[in-house]
Design a protein around this nucleic acid. Structure first.
Lengths: 231, 231
DNA sequence: ATAACGTAGATTGTATACAATATTCAATAT
DNA sequence: ATATTGAATATTGTATACAATCTACGTTAT
């Protein structure tokens, strides 16, 4: 009984518990860091990733580094040749176009489904990120607000597989998305289009939100393409 | 000069060279084997994969086993909890439906693009797999011929990213595809529909091939769904 | 001078060793 | 009898050690 009472006392902590089984391992942390570095462009395409170098950076052995690299390779962010090492994947112009096509296909599907189930809290969250994106003066943060805005609009769809694929697609072109926002007039255009997408969601018109999302993605690709062609 | 002559002699081997850098490592082989086992259903969903057990199976240490498991997890085929180990991913009915939806979206896009660039050799290859599928009496091989048939029809599209996503989607539901063929009247229906899809490709009508592919996928899902509901 | 070779050092892939955590089950308390 | 504890065992995560392979560069032969 004494013990049972102790347990009951702990019931007061309901909701405060943290699932320590989901705690990040070394390789998880290294994976996240490398992924962030790659998708942000801090680690450039074509750059090679020496295991020992990364290991020293994180003060660990090569084992967790290799595990992180294996996951990144499965996702396509790096490539490896046996005994030669890992290199950040290169994207051809055709690759970029193809990935934008996938985004323009999947993201409208998801937002349409999401709008049908969208909670007021989600709308509020999306509005918040939309505003943060619009008012951000530090251009290095535009990419992040942009992604959080769209992510909020997708989450109620309850489409984990779609979201996984969309996430992988965005990861592959994330540095291009940021460049498009910063180096072209993309930011101004995106600000307007985000408001239009958000409005469609508020109206509960999923189909319209989907159409606008598709146009938003394809339009940003055209701007990007024009920019890249002129380099 | 002597050495140069030796090299010139070797020119006779042009085309016979094999890129040994692409040779499979232990972890590659283990990855392939586990993937095959999981997608075929030999290793069942929910089953846990003890590292030591797998390592003994292949007569290696746990290191390459863990690398294979990391890649499988990135692909979604297994899931892990820190210090608890790896488990073959479970699919809810909603997951299965979602993945079939992705297939029904992406595969028509790819076949349409593929048909526009399809070579006679590819058509011949597809015809071959179509025939092998139709005439196969060993039902355990239907899944393989089926996948090879569709794969042949997609390959000329030159859409590596689409194909990667489609491959991952099919991997996740591969055991369901096989079950649908073997445990329902799916084989008979598939045989007919394959011929129709192939005919559209021969005609060079990519849009029609796409529409028929979409119908093929959604139809097989409906049969599968009905079968699963009656279990 | 140029091309092939060979060796030293660098880098990767995997085995072994050890530390951290989980699981099991007998012993104990209620 | 049931619930809880704690020690023994099992399993995982990572460090270290070593073997396989690659890379760079000086040496040799032509």
């Amino acid at each position: 009984m004494k013990l049972k009472r102790e347990f009951e006392v702990l019931e007061g902590l309901t909701g405060l518990g943290i699932d320590l089984a989901k705690t990040a391992s070394s390789s998880d942390i290294i994976y996240d860091a490398l992924r962030d570095g790659i998708i942000s462009g801090q680690i450039k395409a074509g750059e090679s990733l020496r295991q020992e170098h990364v290991a020293k950076l994180f003060n660990v052995s090569r084992i967790p580094v290799r595990e992180a690299l294996n996951r990144l390779e499965a996702q396509g962010l790096v490539q490896s040749l046996r005994y030669k090492g890992y290199v950040v994947s290169l994207l051809s112009p055709a690759d970029v176009e193809e990935i934008y096509e996938v985004r323009a296909t999947l993201e409208p599907m998801v937002i349409e489904k999401s709008v049908a189930m969208m909670t007021p809290e989600t709308l509020e969250e999306a509005r918040k990120y939309c505003e943060l994106f619009s008012s951000e003066t530090d251009s290095s943060k535009w990419g992040e607000w942009n992604r959080l805005f769209h992510g909020a609009l997708y989450k109620d769809a309850k489409r984990p597989f779609h979201l996984k694929l969309i996430g992988e697609a965005i990861d592959r072109v994330d540095s291009y998305i940021r460049a498009q926002l910063v180096l072209t007039n993309g930011m101004e255009k995106a600000r307007k289009e985000h408001l239009e997408i958000l409005a469609a969601c508020v109206e509960g018109d999923g189909e319209l939100a989907g159409k606008r999302t598709r146009k938003h993605i394809l339009g940003s690709y055209k701007v990007l393409r024009k920019y890249l062609d002129n380099q």
